[in-house]
């Protein structure tokens, strides 16, 4: 591992920029993501910053059961994120549709079908600690040594 890669790893591990997108949730998970930003869970102490701009982001948090209005749009948001990038789904809805995936509803879960997902956080809603752990685990597995693994 060369010195440049080491510097990049060190910087990236302390500077993860997150964008979140709600593709049709009940807002429960949005509140939990919001709780991550608040002083009690305080994600900035881990070097995770929220920018709701996909062009500046490294991690995309996807919340919700994928309503028809998001077809094509979610993939567009995903393509705008510069590599290295990772998407994390928050809550039950992006995994299974949970309570919204009933007969006669138009939601189209799982989100995994539409964009590649690096980590899934189950729970309805998941706790802020679980969201935090997912982001930190993605940081260690996806972003470390990116240039060496993708020459």
């Amino acid at each position: 591992m060369n010195i440049l890669q080491r510097i990049k790893n060190a910087v990236r591990s302390r500077s993860i920029h997150v964008a979140y997108v709600d593709v049709g949730s009940c807002n429960g998970c949005d509140i939990e993501v919001l709780a991550c930003l608040a002083p009690r869970y305080d994600i900035e102490q881990y070097g995770i910053y929220v920018h709701n701009n996909p062009r500046e982001a490294d991690v995309l948090l996807v919340i919700g059961a994928y309503t028809p209005g998001w077809e094509e749009k979610l993939a567009m948001v995903w393509e705008k994120i510069p590599a290295p990038k990772a998407a994390i789904t928050i809550g039950n809805c992006p995994i299974s549709g949970c309570l919204f995936d009933r007969k006669g509803s138009f939601v189209d879960p799982p989100v995994k079908k539409h964009i590649p997902i690096a980590a899934e956080v189950p729970g309805c809603p998941p706790r802020p600690t679980e969201i935090l752990q997912a982001i930190l685990s993605v940081r260690d597995t996806v972003f470390a040594n990116w240039e060496e693994e993708h020459p």
């Binding site: 039950n92 995994i95 299974s96 949970c98 309570l99 899934e120 189950p122 729970g123 309805c124």
Partner: peptide
Amino acid sequence: IHKGHCIR
């Protein structure tokens, strides 16, 4: 228990 369906 199926995680991703369970709401705890």
